[in-house]
């Protein structure tokens, strides 16, 4: 599903002392079957934008078009919309309320009125998809590790097979190994299951490895949007708004600046080393 945002504005409340216009006339398009990452400093409006795109907040002006749904000042979304669009909140493990992993994941199956006899199969499939086996089914979700809890939370969204996935800082607190396994999962969701993924993250080195498109926000305004390399090329502009670009990109930019040689942008360090070797040779 393609997402179109047109002149979207939102502030929490006018006239109160902590008033801040969080989203300011944003316009952009997110293509389907791509991984788009929204980056920006704290308080730049990333989470608010995700909540607006999920119909959890009403825009004060402008509109968002997701598939057949239009979210604006007058139109709101329904249950069917939430079936098509999944949202993994920041620290979703804080919202668990069932006593077993099985019940926690299966909750949405009841809500979205899928066939009850499919429930068990769906729960197992969702759990397997996030890399957990059947032994977790009867465990209390609150006794799991943080990473496992996050995986269970993701499984409870994947179970109803949404076409669009919104993820709000899903890898906060993950170590490198868990980040890698999460990266694999995200890539699989895109390639095999054709999900449109929109993600908020501060981890620029991590984003570099999988993002297709990047959207940069600052004080609720869109600074730039485009292919990740197009965005990372603007290193100076990024620094001006307090953001950095990945180390590998910084290296390539430095080589170009000092030596005038283009060694290209790479996602993996091994590819960059090969390029350097070729250049030195």
């Amino acid at each position: 599903m393609e997402i179109k945002v047109d002149k979207l504005s939102f502030d929490y409340q006018k006239d109160i002392p902590i008033e801040k216009r969080l989203i300011n006339k944003l316009s952009f398009t997110i293509e389907q079957d791509k991984i788009t990452v929204i980056i920006g400093k704290n308080g730049s409006g990333k989470t608010t934008l995700l909540e607006l795109m999920n119909g959890l907040l009403k825009p004060q002006s402008g509109k968002i078009i997701i598939g057949d749904y239009v979210i604006d000042k007058k139109n709101t979304v329904d249950k069917e919309f939430h079936k098509k669009v999944g949202f993994l909140f920041q620290f979703p493990e804080e919202q668990f309320f069932h006593s077993t992993v099985e019940k926690e994941i299966g909750f949405s199956v009841d809500q979205f009125q899928y066939r009850v006899n499919e429930k068990e199969k769906r729960v197992k499939e969702a759990l397997l998809l996030v890399g957990l086996n059947d032994s977790y089914l009867k465990r209390d979700p609150l006794t799991l590790s943080n990473v496992e809890m996050r995986k269970v939370a993701l499984a409870s969204i994947l179970i109803y097979n949404p076409k669009v996935l919104f993820l709000d800082e899903p890898t906060v607190g993950f170590d490198e190994e868990n980040k890698k396994s999460f990266l694999k999962l995200i890539k699989r969701l895109k390639k095999r299951y054709h999900k449109t993924i929109i993600m908020v993250s501060h981890d620029i080195e991590f984003i570099h490895k999988f993002a297709d498109e990047i959207l940069v926000l600052d004080n609720g305004k869109l600074i730039t949007q485009g292919d990740k390399y197009e965005v990372f090329k603007q290193e100076k502009r990024m620094k001006e708004i307090g953001l950095t670009v990945p180390k590998m990109i910084q290296f390539s930019n430095l080589v170009y600046e000092k030596k005038g040689k283009k060694i290209g942008y790479r996602d993996e360090i091994n590819d960059l080393i090969k390029d350097i070797y070729r250049y030195v040779k």
Partner: peptide
């Protein structure tokens, strides 16, 4: 935060009856 999470997971507050609303409260 909890109500927003539940909305995303298919809870419909507006169209629920009193019995369902009471159940949602426990969630």
């Amino acid at each position: 935060k909890t109500t927003k999470t539940l909305t995303c997971r298919g809870i419909d507050y507006e169209h629920s009856n009193w019995k369902e609303k009471f159940q949602i409260l426990s969630f």
